[in-house]
Design a protein around this nucleic acid. Structure first.
Length: 933
RNA sequence: GGACGAUUAGCUCAGCUGGUUAGAGCGUCUCGUUUACACCGAGAAGGUCGCAGGUUCGAACCCUGCAUCGUCCACCA
């Protein structure tokens, strides 16, 4: 039986959690491997284990859930694999900060092991929160396959990959210039450095016969090479010579070298180089074999190479050195308003020091993997897979950005001097570990497990490298490391993967994944690295399509941030407006790759829509009860058996809504296939609100028979909520369950979430017992007729509004029409109900015209009967209407008089325009008739 | 310096390969106690599509230049 007490307002809080539990426990989110469809899979971008859900996650979850639910409803074995990322630096920073605040201890004071325990405690707690929040969004991901980047299996995978790369010569250890964060006490990858504009001083210093410019004099203590351009006549005489130059800490022997690296036109055209603290200078030093001496240490202070400035912080050293140089008269001038592009750590905003350190690197240029018949480098393969279309990036324009970034890619520094993360699988034998700094290959062994004996010295004491891997190293493996089974002790990477590529295994079924959906801001951090690493390890792409969404901003277009206090917490929105409305507000009205603005009114708007659907359902459900009470129903008390089936001829509205639904299904499906989720959603929105609710439901109130089994409403609603389900899973499921319980629809599906996606070709109308696909030609007639009916009704309503005629007053009207005489006659009742106007279709205009106000349309005229007073106001309106019409006719005429148009435009266009003109002219002439009387 | 995006109604945005009198939501105004919904209904007002050229029978859409805002990359002696 239908529940009589359906609340007027939909309350998401009451249904969402319980529906989610039912879905989850039914196993619906796990892929149906028996299904014969083409597998569909998404690896969820793992939220950081540190944080809480923010709007970026919410967008990601909404979009991926839409894709996932769509695929599932299409009968594909569907896997959306959830998980979390340990987010090495971010997490370590957070715990460090908490530790300092709570117990005033640094991590060093606590020690590595105890600190890591703290981290794990924090992570466990925070993961719990995140997972709850993901569920709140309605994400239909498979929790039975959930992963964490530090799981045993994933960690093993990371280490195996490291070892394999080392053995292939793709990972090496070297003294190289790296970005160093003095606060994190760790290296950073190139793209983990951000740039900030800052006003600072720029110094022009006298260095022997030349003037050099610098923003960082403190690094220049030991500069002793001057680079000049080989074509620079000013300095030709010096090239190759060595001079004694009075400098910061005494006198240095300065050598002139000619190299095109300098720009003759910039400053004095000469520069000194600081190999240890500048990327460009480091390269030059390597080219010529200059000495590389460290001036700034990892602690951000000058090293002993700083002479008498040793031990000073860079800032202090800068002032002291400038004071010293001034004393010596070596400061030529100081530019006080120099715009400095300061590099800072993306995690903690601390200025980054480029310095030389011994680190582990991934070589991206060395040919190492056979790809399409040729041995190629990681970089080449990564470029090729996008160029060849094996991976498609949406929106397309990011392809260009991707290539540009790849072309500029340097070797990737993967070691980090932090504790939390995957420890580097490198072992130093204790005997030789004291030589570690000298970087002699002989003293370490790269292996997943601790080696037993050192092949060099025979000792058995090993110490693992204290460093951990860049967090993106493990994320780069995410699409496949998450699909592997538990490794066996003797597994090598290859045997492990081979086993998992057997038929029926997850890796074989679901990799490459179908889509990688994520924000464009991590295209380089993550997406590019997955491509680099996965092609190398598996020999296949990690995903076939990359869908990049934009960033969520506030109403003013600013980034949401804690400091601005303009952030919106998706969970607040869910509790205020429901998950469905929140999801709609993040997906509808957005375009991939473009930023979107979010604000509460927008979410409230979609909440209203959700409530509207609720009330459509409420109407259909409650009205259906009267089916049994209807006097004409022979099976009045028979509950919901099939016996209630009452056969009736389809009305125009029935046919129309069915035609619209057919159209909607194919439209929406097309949009889904093209990843146009916003358009798909908007079309359904329009259908439900402005077609089903505003017209079909309203018209259905006009018939004798009540709703329910006598109309198509339940079936139409069912199909529509199937289409909407990927966007708003909760309310659609709730309505489905209620429709089913009411007996209004028959369905074998336990959940709407597992129902089959509607097909335009088989819209079922059980009332007639047959599938009633409407042919295209029939659809055209039906829609044309219905449009005419809508136009008539709207015109009458407009007249009422223009003339302030309240609906409480019933009116009479005469309609003259050639084309729609029969139609309007048959719809008299509907028209009367929706306009409170009784119409009479007449062959010609009525006699007493003074008593009528008029509406002229292309296919009909309306004469609304009125008292004389009310008539007075119409003159102005008529004049305006006529002017518009005249303009329109004029523009069409001139278009059709244009010979070039007639010659060049396609025939259909010309015909269409001619028809339009004819109609407009007819309309105008009727108008004129009226005015001339 | 390079690349990319944005510029359309008061606000937020659609507008797919050029072809109705450029659309939606919110907001505004008018009307409405019609038995699904006021988180509602009916109706209206509001735009020379950033500017200037060009291509075309026809441009919001294509081309060139410019402007403003934003993002990314590179550089920064």
């Amino acid at each position: 039986m239908t529940d009589k007490n359906i609340p007027k307002t939909y309350d998401p809080q009451k249904v969402e959690d319980s529906l989610y539990k039912q879905w989850e426990s039914s196993g619906l989110f796990e892929p149906d491997i028996k299904s014969k469809g083409k597998p569909f899979s998404i690896a969820m971008p793992p939220p950081n284990a540190t944080g809480t859900l923010h709007l970026g996650h919410a967008v990601m979850l909404a979009l991926e859930d839409i894709m996932t639910r769509y695929a599932r409803m299409n009968g594909r074995p569907t896997l959306w694999l959830p998980g979390t990322d340990h987010a090495a630096i971010a997490t370590e920073n957070k715990v460090e900060k908490d530790l300092l605040e709570k117990s005033k201890k640094t991590k060093q004071q606590l020690g590595r092991e105890k600190f890591l325990k703290e981290v794990e405690k924090f992570v466990a707690q925070s993961q719990d929160t995140i997972k709850k929040q993901v569920r709140k969004m309605g994400a239909s991901c498979d929790w039975s396959r959930e992963r964490y980047t530090l799981d045993a299996g994933l960690s093993r995978c990371v280490q195996e990959v490291f070892v394999k790369m080392y053995n292939d010569g793709l990972i090496y250890r070297g003294h190289r210039i790296v970005n160093w964060c003095t606060r994190c006490q760790s290296t950073l990858a190139d793209d983990e450095v951000e740039y900030k504009e800052q006003y600072g001083k720029f110094y022009y210093l006298k260095y022997g016969p030349v003037t050099i410019g610098t923003a960082r004099p403190e690094t220049k203590v030991l500069d002793k090479v001057i680079i000049v351009h080989p074509d620079d006549k000013r300095y030709k005489k010096y090239v190759g010579k060595t001079l004694d130059v009075p400098w910061i800490d005494g006198t240095v022997k300065a050598t002139f070298v000619a190299d095109k690296a300098t720009d003759m036109n910039m400053g004095s055209g000469a520069m000194t180089i600081t190999p240890a603290h500048s990327f460009v200078d480091f390269e030059l030093a390597q080219k010529y074999g200059f000495e590389i001496k460290q001036i700034i240490g990892p602690d951000g202070k000058l090293t002993k190479n700083g002479g008498k400035f040793a031990g000073l912080d860079v800032r202090e050293a800068r002032d002291a050195i400038i004071a010293e140089l001034k004393k010596k008269g070596l400061v030529e001038k100081i530019d006080e308003n120099y715009v400095h592009n300061l590099s800072v750590c993306y995690r903690c905003d601390t200025p980054v020091e480029p310095l030389v350190a011994e680190q582990w690197f991934v070589n991206v240029d060395k040919p190492a993997r056979t790809w399409k018949g040729k041995k190629r480098s990681l970089k080449k393969i990564a470029i090729d897979v996008v160029k060849s279309g094996d991976i498609k990036i949406l929106p397309d324009r990011f392809t260009k950005t991707y290539f540009q970034w790849m072309a500029n890619l340097h070797d990737w520094c993967v070691s980090r001097q932090i504790w939390f993360g995957h420890r580097i699988p490198v072992w130093y034998c204790k005997e030789s570990s004291k030589f570690k700094v000298q970087s002699s290959k002989k003293h370490y062994i790269v292996s997943v497990n601790q080696p037993k004996v050192c092949p060099d010295c025979g000792c058995k004491n090993f110490e693992q490298d204290p460093d951990t891997l860049d967090t993106w190293f493990s994320s780069a493996l995410w699409t496949f490391s998450t699909l592997l089974d538990a490794p066996k002790p003797n597994d090598t990477l290859d045997s492990w993967i081979k086993r998992n590529k057997q038929p029926g295994k997850d890796l074989q079924l679901f990799h490459p994944t179908s889509v990688m959906e994520t924000g464009y801001d991590i295209l380089f951090f993550w997406v590019a690295r997955m491509i680099l690493m996965t092609t190398y390890v598996l020999g296949e792409v990690p995903f076939k399509t990359v869908y990049l969404h934009g960033l969520v901003r506030d109403k003013e277009g600013r980034k949401m941030s804690k400091s601005l206090g303009n952030g919106i917490d998706p969970l607040d929105m869910i509790s205020d407006y429901g998950a469905d409305a929140t999801r709609l507000s993040l997906v509808l009205g957005t375009t991939p790759g473009n930023d979107t603005r979010l604000y509460e009114e927008k979410i409230a708007g979609y909440r209203n829509f959700v409530n509207k659907i609720w009330n459509i359902a409420r109407f259909i459900l409650t009205r259906s009860e009267s089916t049994n009470e209807h006097p004409n129903n022979p099976n009045k008390n028979s509950g919901h058996s099939d016996a209630i089936r009452v056969i009736r001829v389809a009305t125009l509205a029935d046919q129309w809504i069915q035609s619209r639904l057919q159209n909607l299904i194919s439209d929406v499906t097309n949009h889904f296939e093209k990843y146009e989720f916003s358009s798909a959603g908007e079309k359904i929105y329009d259908f439900l609100w402005h077609e089903l609710a505003d017209w079909y439901v309203e018209i259905s109130k006009c018939t004798d028979a009540p709703l329910g089994r006598l109309s198509l409403a339940p079936e139409i609603l069912l199909e529509a909520i199937k289409l909407l389900h990927p966007f708003t899973p909760f309310i659609t499921e709730e309505i489905f369950q209620r429709l089913k319980a009411s007996g209004l629809i028959k369905s074998d599906d336990e959940f709407l979430a597992s129902a089959a996606w509607p097909k335009a070709s088989s819209v079922q109308t059980p009332h007639w017992g047959v599938s009633r696909k409407i042919s295209e030609s029939a659809r055209k007639n039906i829609e044309q007729d219905f449009s005419a009916l809508q136009e008539l009704i709207t015109t009458i309503r407009d007249l009422r509004a223009q003339h302030n005629l309240p609906y409480s007053e019933k009116l009479d009207a005469a309609i003259t029409t050639a084309k729609y005489k029969k139609l309007f006659q048959s719809q008299e009742r509907v028209i009367e109900q929706l306009t409170k106007v009784r119409i009479q279709v007449l062959p010609s205009k009525p006699v007493n015209q003074e008593e009528y106000i008029l509406g002229h349309k292309a296919d009909f005229d309306i004469y609304l009967k009125l008292s004389r007073q009310t008539m007075a106001g119409q003159e102005k309106r008529l004049a305006k209407e006529r002017a518009n019409l005249e303009n329109y006719v004029k523009s069409l005429e001139s278009k059709l008089a244009n010979k070039n148009f007639l010659k060049n435009a396609p025939k259909e266009v010309v015909e269409k325009e001619k028809l339009k003109l004819k109609e407009a002219q007819a309309s105008l002439s009727r108008h004129s008739d009226q005015d001339d009387r």
